[in-house]
Computed example of a mutant assay.
Amino acid sequence: MVSNPEAPRQARDVLYATLLDGIVQLRYPPGARLSDVAVAAELGVSRTPAREAILRLADEGLVAVRPRSGTFVTPIDRHAVREAQFVREALEVAALQAAMANRERLDFDALAANIAGQREAIARDDIPGFGVFDTELHQRIFDASGFPAVARVAAPSRAHLDRVRKLNERPEAFPQLIEDHARLVAAMRDDDVDGATAALRVHLRRVLEVLERLERVRPDLFA
Rank of each mutant, 00 (worst) to 15 (best):
N102H: 14
Y16I: 06
E60K: 12
M188H: 07
N102K: 15
P148T: 01
V37C: 11
V45K: 05
V81E: 03
D134R: 03
V210K: 12
R27P: 05
G31S: 04
L19I: 10
R163L: 02
I141T: 00
R33N: 09
D191L: 10
F222W: 01
D190A: 15
R206K: 14
R140H: 02
A159N: 03
Q25W: 05
A154H: 06
V164Y: 01
L167I: 02
R218D: 00
R9P: 07
T18Q: 14
P67D: 12
L177S: 12
P219L: 01
I122Q: 06
Q85E: 14
P156Y: 00
D180Y: 08
P75E: 12
P8C: 04
A199T: 07
S35V: 04
L208C: 05
D13P: 06
E52N: 11
A32R: 09
L43W: 14
E215Q: 15
E212Q: 08
L214V: 03
D191S: 15
P171A: 01
L26W: 14
R165G: 06
F72Y: 15
E42M: 13
P148Q: 01
V24G: 01
G44P: 09
G61F: 12
E169F: 04
L137T: 00
R216D: 02
L184W: 04
R163S: 01
V63P: 10
E172G: 05
A116R: 15
R205A: 14
A186C: 06
R51V: 13
E104F: 11
V39F: 06
E212G: 03
Q176D: 12
R183D: 13
N4C: 11
V63I: 09
P219F: 03
E6G: 11
A187M: 07
F130Q: 03
R124G: 08
N4L: 12
T197Y: 09
L204W: 09
Q25V: 09
R33D: 07
A182Y: 02
D134W: 04
G131V: 01
E212L: 06
V193Y: 07
A98L: 14
E42Q: 15
R189S: 13
V164S: 01
E89H: 04
S145M: 00
A198H: 13
A186Y: 05
L19Q: 07
A116V: 07
E60W: 12
E92S: 04
Q85P: 00
